[in-house]
Simulated scan of single mutants.
Amino acid sequence: MTGEFAGDSGTLAQEELAPLVTSTDPEVLHRRWLTSETASRCSESPFYPYTSAKIHTLLTAALLDNYRAGYDFHELSLEVHSGTGIDAVCPAPGTLARADVVTPIRTVLATPRVTVTVTGDPSGPAAQLGTVPARCSADVWGRLPAHPLDVSTHATRVLDAQLRRIRAVSTALQYVEDVHRWRGWGAAVTDTNADAPLGGDGR
C-alpha cells in the first residue's frame, strides 16, 4: 500500500453506465443492477474499494420499495437463501439464480450460492435489521436462524468468519460477490437477456 490515489480503474464508461440508468421500468433497472458485473467495479471512493455503489443502489431501492409498501425500518429483515439447489439450476456463470428466491426490487445480492433480500415479509431464513439504520451486517448475519453457508470447506469458513466481523451491509455483500467471482463460484448472476423477468412472487 503506497497511499497513492487509486486512479480511474473503478469507474464506469458512459456506454457501460447507460443501460443502468436509461429504463423507466423499475424491475428492468433492478435486474440490470443485480446482474451487472461492470457496476460491481464501481466504488463510491477510490480510497475505499468496498464502498460498493452497486450494493448501495440496490439497498436504497429495496428500502424504498418496502417503505412504499407500508413497512417501517424496524419491521425489515435480511432474508438469506443458501445455494442448496441453486448450483443445479445455475451450473455456470451466465445463468439466473433460482427464480423463487429472487424478489423484484428487494433482492440485493444474487449469486449461485447465496441470495440476499431485504423485505418486510420474509418467506425463508431471515433476521431483523434492527430498530434503526446502523452498521449492523455482522450482527444480522449472526442472528440468522439457519446457517446460510455450507462451511465444510476452508474457503467458505473464511467467508463466513469475515461476514461475522464486517459491519457495513454494502461491504459485506460486495465481499460475498467478489469472493464468489475469485473462487470461480460465479459472480453476480448474469443472463444474456438482462431485461427478461426475474421471476419470484412479486413484492
Rank of each mutant, 00 (worst) to 15 (best):
Gly120Thr: 12
Thr107Leu: 11
Ser77Thr: 09
Gly70Glu: 07
Gly120Asn: 14
Val108Ser: 01
Val108Ile: 15
Pro49His: 05
Ala61Asn: 10
Thr60Ser: 15
Thr153Gln: 14
Ala110Pro: 10
Ser123Asn: 11
Gly120Ile: 05
Thr51Tyr: 06
Val80Glu: 01
Ala92Cys: 03
Cys136Gln: 10
Ser137Arg: 04
Thr60Gln: 12
His56Cys: 07
Leu159Cys: 13
Thr95Glu: 08
Leu159Thr: 02
Thr51Glu: 11
Trp33Glu: 00
Pro125Asp: 11
Ala88Met: 11
Ala69Trp: 04
Ala61His: 09
Cys90Glu: 03
Val169Pro: 02
Arg164His: 12
Thr35Arg: 06
Asn66Leu: 03
Asp121Lys: 15
Tyr71Gln: 08
Tyr50Arg: 07
Arg41Phe: 05
Ser36Gln: 08
Thr131Cys: 05
Ala172Pro: 09
Ser123Gly: 13
Val89Leu: 15
Thr95Val: 06
Val89Lys: 14
Leu34Ile: 02
Arg164Lys: 14
Gly120Cys: 08
Gly142Thr: 13
Cys90His: 13
Pro46Gln: 00
Val108Glu: 01
Leu29Trp: 03
Gly85Asn: 07
Thr115Ala: 06
Ala172Thr: 12
Glu37Arg: 12
Val108Ala: 04
Gly124Ile: 00
Leu29Lys: 07
Ala97Tyr: 01
Leu78Gln: 00
Glu37Phe: 00
Gly130Pro: 04
